[in-house]
Amino acid sequence: MMETFQELEMYKNFDELAEDVIDLAKEILPDQLFYLSSITEAQQIVLKHSLNTSSIPVAEGMVLDLNDTLCSRMDFENKQPLVYEDVQGAPELKHIEDKLEAAHVRSYLGLPISFVNGDRFGTLCAVNDEKSQFDARSITLLQRIVRMFSYYLDLERFAYRDSLTDLYNRHFLTRFFDGNSKAGGSIFFLDLDGFKNVNDLYGHETGDLVLKEVAAKLQQFIEGQTDVLAARLGGDEFLICFAKPVSAAELSEWATRLLASLSQWEADYSLSASIGIAQYPAGGNQDLRELLRQADHALYQAKKSGKNCYSFY
């Protein structure tokens, strides 16, 4: 969840555009309380909302258990709106009726917001503490607003994401590092051993699939960790940035675990990885380019030591 909002903070004019979306929605249905949210598999967070004159408690930054919300029923695959002109008595909402009553939600209109590739972003929702009527024309206009907002999200995402693996790119890494380096931390600079042979033997299509699988392994490796970012620098070079103090012993343990993951493949690839590790102290004005140079030097030492290993700068 935190990774999503660190990314949103870097989007140009996100706050302004989100407010415009809410204002346009209010022009269409002025009697509704609108909010824009982002969701993960487990949570929903309110990003922006309109002026609240109802009894419904809502605040920017509010985090909700997704299973306790109406948005959990949203049809993202078919991009269909979810409409309840009166939530009372709906049998499929029996498990959350107490929460809806406590929040004074009587009516609900939700529209899914997705990226072009189908990944979920969140929702634009209208709620009221009274019964409502939602006409087809209003819903269609709101869907058009959501579609335009989705195009904006994709343009911003393309600026910060690697198009093949969907990991963050060097541009996002630089901005992330500049905003999170004061506490000290470290980086893993990874390079695949034997990747050229995969391309030569199996073709570049297979090579691309391998790079995507590496990205998935890196995402799995950092899952659940705070202040950690995985990025693709280009080719078969990847980086993990730990924007927090971590001991050398713990870094060694993590590097060993990551190397084991990157040497296990369902297909019979002769493939592994080498890692260069560079650490930086808290409070300094660390230059990312210099840190990358140090990590690259450590990576070279790991390669010289026989590959499929790690080395500290």
Score class of each variant (00 low, 15 high):
Lys12Glu: 10
Ala216Leu: 12
Arg106Phe: 04
Leu233Val: 11
Pro91Glu: 12
Leu291Glu: 05
Lys131Asn: 14
Glu130Cys: 13
Ala183Met: 07
Phe189Arg: 09
Asn180Phe: 10
Gly284Glu: 08
Thr206Ser: 06
Gly306Cys: 09
Phe134Val: 13
Ile113Trp: 04
Gly118Val: 06
Leu70Met: 15
Asp166Cys: 08
Leu141Asn: 09
Arg170Glu: 14
Phe5Cys: 11
Asp129Val: 01
Glu41His: 07
Cys125His: 07
Tyr108Leu: 08
Val63Lys: 15
Glu130Ser: 13
Ala298Lys: 07
Gln43Ala: 09
Arg289Tyr: 06
Met10Glu: 15
Thr165Gly: 02
Tyr168Pro: 01
Ala255Asp: 10
Val87Asp: 03
Glu213Pro: 05
Asn78Ala: 07
Arg257Gln: 14
Tyr35Leu: 15
Thr226Arg: 13
Gly185Glu: 01
Val210Lys: 06
Asp208Lys: 10
Ile28Val: 12
Asn169Ile: 00
Gln143Ile: 09
Gln225Leu: 10
Gly194Ile: 07
Thr174Tyr: 10
Thr140Asp: 13
Met2Asp: 12
Ala42Glu: 15
Asp193Cys: 05
Pro245Ala: 10
Asn197Asp: 11
Lys182Tyr: 04
Gly118Asn: 08
Gln219Glu: 14
Arg120Cys: 00
Leu70Cys: 14
Glu213Ala: 11
Leu36Cys: 07
Asp75Gly: 12
Leu17Asn: 07
Phe158His: 12
Leu153Val: 01
Asp236Ile: 06
Cys309Asp: 11
Ala42Pro: 01
Lys131Cys: 04
Glu77Gln: 15
Leu141Met: 14
Cys309His: 08
Asn199Glu: 05
Phe115Pro: 03
Ile28Phe: 13
Gly284Pro: 00
Leu259Glu: 03
Ala183Lys: 12
Ser55Ala: 15
Gly283Ala: 12
Arg120Ala: 09
Leu262Cys: 09
Ser252Thr: 11
Asp191Trp: 00
Arg161His: 15
Glu3Gln: 13
Ala278Leu: 10
Tyr84Arg: 05
Leu288Pro: 06
Leu291Gly: 03
Leu47Tyr: 04
Glu237His: 15
Ser72Arg: 04
Phe177Asn: 02
Glu85Ser: 15
Glu101Thr: 15
Asp135Trp: 10
Leu173Met: 14
Asp166Asn: 13
Tyr280Ile: 05
Asp296Met: 07
Tyr300Thr: 04
Ser37Phe: 04
Leu153Ile: 03
Ala243Leu: 04
Glu253Leu: 10
Ala103Ile: 04
Ala25Gly: 12
Gly185Gln: 05
Asp236Gln: 12
Gly234Val: 10
Lys26Cys: 14
Asp119His: 13
Gly184Met: 01
Val63Cys: 11
Leu258Tyr: 03
Cys71Val: 03
Met10Ile: 07
Gln143Ala: 05
His49Phe: 09
Gly283Glu: 09
Leu271Trp: 02
Glu41Tyr: 08
Trp265Pro: 02
Val87Cys: 09
Gly207Glu: 03
Gly203Arg: 11
Asn197Arg: 12
Ser50Glu: 07
Thr123Asp: 00
Glu60Asp: 06
Thr226Pro: 00
Leu93Trp: 06
Gly118Met: 03
Cys309Ala: 13
Ser186Gly: 14
Lys196Glu: 04
